[in-house]
Design a protein around this nucleic acid. Structure first.
Length: 292
DNA sequence: TAAGCGTGGAT
DNA sequence: TATCCAAGCTT
C-alpha cells in the first residue's frame, strides 16, 4: 500500500470538525450513545438529541432504571426507534453483566444488543483508545475509491476490516486518528454525491481519480418509496404514542383517519411484535417496565 | 444474503 | 418533484 495514513493524519489535524464526542473526556457512555444515534442518522440531527439524552441519563444505570418507553419518547424523531429500545436493552445488559461500566473488549461489546462490527470497534477505539480497524460507510467509500479505484464500495463485508487494518500505522494513537480521519474524509470530502477532489489530501494517490473516475455499475436496489409505505404508518402510530406519553391511547383513537385501515392495523401489530408498543385491553402505549 | 427498518435535508 | 443519502443492525 502506498499508505493513506500519513496524508490522512496531516489533513485531519486541520480539517476535523469540532464534534461533542471528540471532546476530551467525553466518556465511554457518551460515545456509545452517540454511536447508536449516528447509526443512519446525520451528525447535525444527532447533536442536540445526544446532549439532552446524556443530561437525562448520565450513565447506563440511569437509563436502565427508566422504562424502555421513556427511551423511545426521548428518542423523538431521530428515526429507526428500535435503536432506542436496543440502547435501553444494552444499558440493562451493561448494568447486569458489567457492573454498569461500558465494556472495553470488542467481543463483550458485540454481545450487547444493537451493537455490531462498526459500533463495537468505534467504542473500543474512540472511547478507550485501543487499536482496531473501524469501518463505516464513509471509510468503505474512501477505500473503494482511493485503493480500489471504484466509484462506490460493494456491500459491507468482514474483509473490509482486514483491508482497513492494513492501512493502520503501528502506533495506537496514530491508528485511532487514521480511523477517525478516514471516516471524516468520507463524510465531508469524499462524499457519495459530489466528492471535493480539489481539496482531497489523497488526490495524488487516489486510484479512482487516476483511472479517470469510472462509474461503478451499481446494482444497488433503490430505496423503497416512503410515502404510503408500512414504514410511514409505523412512524405515524409511534408518533401518536410519543406525543401522548406517558398516557396510553385508546385503540380507536390511533390514526382514525388513516387512509388504509388494514395498513394501520398491520403497523400496530408489528410495533407490538417488535416491543415498541404494548396493547393492553383496548389501549396502546409505549413499553413500560418489564413485569419481572 | 437480502430485506426491513424512520426521518428530514440536499440536489 | 422525486430520489438520494445519512458514523448500521437484526433476522
Amino acid at each position: 500500500m502506498p499508505g493513506l495514513a500519513a496524508p490522512l493524519i496531516a489533513w485531519y489535524r486541520d480539517a476535523a470538525r469540532d464534534l461533542p464526542w471528540r471532546r476530551e473526556g467525553f466518556g465511554a457512555w457518551g460515545t456509545l450513545v452517540s454511536e447508536f444515534m449516528l447509526q443512519q442518522t446525520p451528525v447535525t440531527r444527532v447533536i442536540p438529541h445526544l446532549e439532552a439524552w446524556l443530561a437525562r441519563w448520565p450513565s447506563p444505570t440511569d437509563l436502565a432504571a427508566s422504562p424502555p418507553g421513556d427511551a423511545v419518547t426521548q428518542w423523538a424523531n431521530l428515526g429507526y426507534p428500535r435503536r432506542a429500545l436496543w440502547l435501553h436493552r444494552a444499558a440493562v445488559e451493561i448494568r447486569d453483566r458489567h457492573d454498569g461500566v461500558v465494556p472495553r473488549d470488542v467481543d463483550a461489546l458485540l454481545a450487547l444488543t444493537g451493537i455490531g462490527d462498526y459500533t463495537a470497534r468505534a467504542v473500543a477505539v474512540f472511547a478507550y483508545g485501543d487499536r482496531h480497524p473501524v469501518v463505516d460507510t464513509n471509510t468503505r467509500r474512501v477505500l473503494a475509491r482511493a485503493v480500489e479505484g471504484r466509484a462506490q464500495p460493494g456491500p459491507p463485508h468482514r474483509r473490509d476490516l482486514e483491508r482497513m487494518d492494513a492501512e493502520l500505522p503501528d502506533g495506537i494513537a496514530e491508528a485511532a486518528v487514521v480511523n477517525a480521519a478516514a471516516m471524516e474524509l468520507g463524510a465531508i470530502v469524499c462524499t457519495a454525491r459530489s466528492p471535493k477532489c480539489a481539496v482531497c489530501p489523497l488526490a495524488d494517490l487516489c486510484a479512482w481519480r487516476a483511472a479517470g473516475y469510472p462509474e461503478s455499475e451499481d446494482r444497488r436496489r433503490r430505496q423503497a418509496t416512503y410515502e404510503g409505505s408500512d414504514r410511514q404508518a409505523r412512524g405515524a402510530v409511534l408518533k401518536t404514542l410519543r406525543d401522548a406519553a406517558p398516557s396510553p391511547v385508546p385503540l380507536f383513537a390511533v390514526l382514525p383517519d388513516w387512509p388504509d385501515a388494514a395498513q394501520r392495523d398491520r403497523a400496530i401489530d408489528s410495533l407490538v411484535s417488535d416491543g415498541l408498543a404494548e396493547a393492553i385491553d383496548d389501549v396502546l402505549r409505549l413499553p413500560g417496565h418489564p413485569a419481572s
